[in-house]
């Protein structure tokens, strides 16, 4: 991981404003998540999915039947890389520098997200723990439900500022606050 990218977060300049404490609706930008992009070789999809679910300290976000994002906020890239290397039929690459992880939570979060996402986020359609690739504010990203009123968004770094601004505007009517979470 290169020092220059982790040293200063891409959204650092957008965190201004008078917001002494988080409101009920809050957007947390995770400062240094570890994100791996993984791809199962043809024929290994089921075995790889099973093996990925057993890796410790990570969450697995589904992208396609043979494609996942492995995300961690606690384990180091080296540890995860070592675990992934033991899985047969899997190719992976670290994407921590290239992706931005944001977490949204609060009672109005579904209404806020409905302005950015065309997918039905009712709990019957998009259950807790589910994740899917989709357009988020017209940017191809990954959305995951981490709780009844909690979601996580992963978007490419170069589009993160735009998505962040859109989410901020969408959350304005609910006084959504935002800040870094470490």
């Amino acid at each position: 991981m290169s020092i220059s990218f982790t040293h200063r977060h891409i959204l650092e300049d957008r965190m201004g404003g008078y917001e002494p404490s988080p409101n009920a609706n809050h957007l947390t930008v995770v400062r240094r998540p570890v994100i791996f992009s993984t791809l199962a070789h043809a024929g290994h999809e089921a075995a790889v999915a099973e093996a990925l679910s057993l890796v410790e300290d990570v969450v697995v976000r589904s992208v396609s039947p043979s494609d996942w994002l492995v995300v961690s906020q606690s384990a180091s890239a080296a540890t995860i890389s070592a675990s992934l290397a033991t899985i047969p039929g899997l190719s992976f690459a670290e994407q921590s520098d290239g992706q931005v992880l944001m977490a949204l939570s609060g009672p109005d979060v579904r209404t806020i997200l409905a302005k950015c996402v065309a997918v039905d986020l009712h709990a019957d359609m998009f259950a807790e723990g589910q994740s899917a690739p989709m357009m988020i504010c017209r940017v191809a990203g990954n959305l995951a439900r981490t709780g009844a009123d909690a979601f996580e968004i992963i978007v490419p770094r170069s589009h993160a500022a735009y998505v962040f601004d859109e989410l901020r505007d969408a959350g304005r009517e609910f006084a959504m606050t935002r800040g870094f979470g470490d």
Partner: peptide
């Protein structure tokens, strides 16, 4: 078949 109902913009 993998993602469900999506808008054509995707």
């Amino acid at each position: 078949p993998h993602c469900g109902r999506r808008p054509k913009e995707e």
